[in-house]
Design a protein around this nucleic acid. Structure first.
Lengths: 204, 204
DNA sequence: TAAAGAAGTGAACTCTGTTTCACTTCTTGC
DNA sequence: GCAAGAAGTGAAACAGAGTTCACTTCTTTA
């Protein structure tokens, strides 16, 4: 026998796999999806195209993971903000603030994740990764309704609408050719929009 | 000399051009973008692929017009609703109602226009055709601010957010594999969301 | 160190869809 | 009717991706 999958071998394989994902992220962040073809990603990771296919059966699978990795960071931070103490409105404002602030700082990668026109195959992944955001908002809203801070309503519908509102309002400023925008004003405006959208606090 | 572009010739050319656009719309509505390749569109229009290229220099140009035609109908109806009498909030609710109702009735074509993953080339058109909607809402909001019905705010930002909210909330229900949704509840929820989002009426 | 099998290579292939073009058919004006 | 040029044909060329595969290189174990 020869060449067993020892621990060190597995570690190296995982490391290569991670390198591929990182390479894809690098290229997307640098040149957008146009610059992130399979051969380019493989080269960036220091591999041949063929070798890449030992790690991911298809481009869609690779980008599924790329989106997951890139989104998870953001989702985690937002989820963390959602868990912060305070009223539902306060928590919602914190999530909106964190989300928008990070997106605006995220540069081209944020644009790619949120808005850049992509291959339909990959677009499907993008849509999928909006669900966690919706769920974060829906959770806060449900809490607020339960606590009587927010009027009765379909929490998931409101949450979807908020996700859409944030995305759309950020697409313009994130576009590579966008002019300077007043970031603080934008964030404040979004926070206002979202809290108002929940409806007025019920008067007990 | 022979074969001048007389009036009747021009009419026929225009008619053929329109037929191509109509054929594209038909196919998109029937099978989505997947079924709307150039040869299929040409065949549907009763032409050869080569002839189609006498009317449109490229697929992107054709789809630019397809989007324009399909969107214009909707935009016109919304603009009409925006011109209706009443307070800014009433007008806004009317536009939201019309937009959402027509989208939900629009079937596959509406899904294609709003949400279906598409070629990046075409996706760019889709983004472009959101601007008129934003402008309609921005106009209503500006009117409302001027009239003191709506608090001072960045009308364009709020309008963008509303467009995003409507789109996102409709994507789910419009998806071909979506289950039944209570259309009236959805529309009412969206109207509520949008009017609340404007902020409370200033107390003079 | 030699055998065994995994990892890696990269040019070639496939697939999918757009675009072209040499040729034919049709319309118009004389 | 006939010349002139436009409209129309459709198979074939092209283009740009993702993917494959026969082959080479490397790692591990006995």
């Amino acid at each position: 026998m020869a060449y067993r999958r020892t621990e060190s071998v597995v570690a190296r394989l995982n490391e290569t796999r991670d390198r591929i994902v990182a390479a894809a992220l690098t290229l997307v962040a640098r040149h957008g999806y146009g610059g992130a073809g399979i051969p380019a990603i493989a080269a960036e990771a220091g591999l041949s195209t063929g070798a890449l296919y030992r790690y991911f059966p298809s481009k869609a699978d690779l980008f599924d993971e790329v989106f997951r990795v890139a989104s998870q960071r953001e989702i985690d931070v937002c989820a963390e903000a959602a868990r912060s103490p305070g009223s539902a409105r306060e928590r919602l404002v914190r999530v909106v603030d964190v989300f928008a602030r990070r997106a605006l700082k995220g540069g081209r990668l944020a644009y790619a994740l949120l808005a850049e026109p992509v291959d339909p195959l990959i677009e499907a992944e993008r849509l999928r990764y909006r669900v966690p955001y919706r769920d974060i908002f829906a959770g806060i809203i449900a809490d607020g309704i339960r606590a009587g801070e927010i009027p009765e309503q379909d929490a998931v519908l409101t949450a979807s609408a908020i996700v859409g509102a944030l995305n759309e309002a950020l697409i313009g400023p994130l576009a590579p050719q966008a002019g300077k925008t007043d970031q603080e004003k934008l964030i404040a405006g979004l926070a206002r929009f979202c809290t108002h959208a929940l409806g007025p606090t019920p008067k007990k």
